[in-house]
Design a protein around this nucleic acid. Structure first.
Lengths: 213, 213
DNA sequence: CGGAAAATCGATACGCCGTACGGAATGGTG
DNA sequence: CACCATTCCGTACGGCGTATCGATTTTCCG
């Protein structure tokens, strides 16, 4: 199903249609249904294949914070490489083999900690929540709507007069200064890295303090 | 466009089609294109209408942590009431009037803090990232795939033999104990409340420590 | 190797979808 | 009343997921 992934990488998940994938393979549409039962199954296969990329190779760092940071950074990288994955991740739990392996690896990152397994899971959930939210909002920022390929400048030009109206209305005393010089929504690439690391550190700090780790 | 929202609430965002909404209104499909230009515009209108519900009425708590907690809790409530909103939120920035008002209110929650506006925005972004991720994973847990209405028990029954196979494989020493007694993915309703509050507290603690607030 | 059984393929068709287009109706303004 | 802009409506095009079914290929066993 590499063809399906290639299509999604290039044109987004909506471009992945049964007919399209079949054409890419030189087959007819209905032939795909010998391998899958519903289109959703195709998506599941795609997701699990890419979930394999999330697995961190080699030894995990011994320090638990470094270990889950490594995993979560890798998750972000993969989600940037395959932005359509967030559409699938947000639709259903990832319980394919590689999804489970990812869960296992996340737990392994905390294996040294002497706390109950439930708590390990809660830590992972909180960090994953943050990371998922960040990556979603990051992706949405950099491409606007997936599929509509406006450049940053074009969208900026369209948006500015619209935003100006609101700024001038005086209804947004706190927001206006931030909107004035380039929307804060659109920050450069390395800024995003800093933001990601900072939020992650905040979350981990809060966890460490609370659980005295 | 209340009809469109009603459809989405009841059957998910995919059930919202131009023809369907038109029928609900006793009109023909093409008549809708008098008011909107593309289907996306309809989604934008729906999103902004619901974004209004996110706004916290009355005075915000004076304490900044309480204030943004109140906003974020309300966000979660609304996203539970209108689960389809996450599909729209994750596709494009919310810059409608009510989306902006929400941003303004979030900043207002931090107005007492004597830090630079950029830092306020970073705090809000981190908290929103966490909240968005949590709500997405929460919604995905409780309904599986939106549209496919399996009961919890049915999905459980289907899943168990599949998971058992992996548990017995021995490849998942850390994960297996958690999967054994009811997947940790599926926690009850009040548990979810606790989880949400705990993660939020962790994030806010980390922020407060780092910025000495 | 021969033939039965199972898996795969192919074409066609149904009912959806978003929306381009062009004509008909409508309502407000001179 | 005539004019014109806005709104409405029917039709049509190309694309979608997939049910059905006959034809073909592949696999397996005696």
């Amino acid at each position: 199903m590499a063809s399906a992934i290639a299509i999604a990488d290039a044109e987004g998940i909506d471009a992945v249609s049964i007919r399209r994938v079949a054409a890419e393979l030189g087959a007819r549409a209905m032939s795909l249904y010998t391998h899958i039962e519903r289109k959703e199954d195709l998506f599941d296969l795609m997701a699990d294949e890419v979930n394999a990329e999330i697995l961190v190779e080699g030894e995990l760092p011994g320090d638990w914070r470094e270990a889950i940071s490594a995993i979560v950074r890798r998750t972000r990288e993969v989600l940037r490489r395959h932005p359509w994955l967030v559409d699938l991740v947000s639709r259903r739990p990832q319980v394919g083999p590689n999804g489970l392996r990812h869960g296992e690896q996340s737990l392994a990152a905390l294996s040294r900690l002497r706390i109950e397994p439930e708590w390990k899971w809660r830590i992972i959930a909180a960090v994953d929540d943050y990371a998922l939210g960040f990556v979603i909002r990051e992706g949405m920022r950099q491409e606007g709507s997936r599929g509509y390929a406006w450049t940053q400048a074009e969208r900026d030009a369209l948006m500015r007069p619209y935003l100006r109206e609101f700024i001038d209305s005086g209804e947004f005393p706190n927001l206006a200064p931030l909107l004035a010089d380039g929307a804060p929504d659109v920050e450069g690439g390395d800024r995003a890295d800093d933001d990601f690391e900072r939020g992650l550190r905040w979350m981990l700090d809060g966890i460490a303090r609370d659980l005295a780790l």
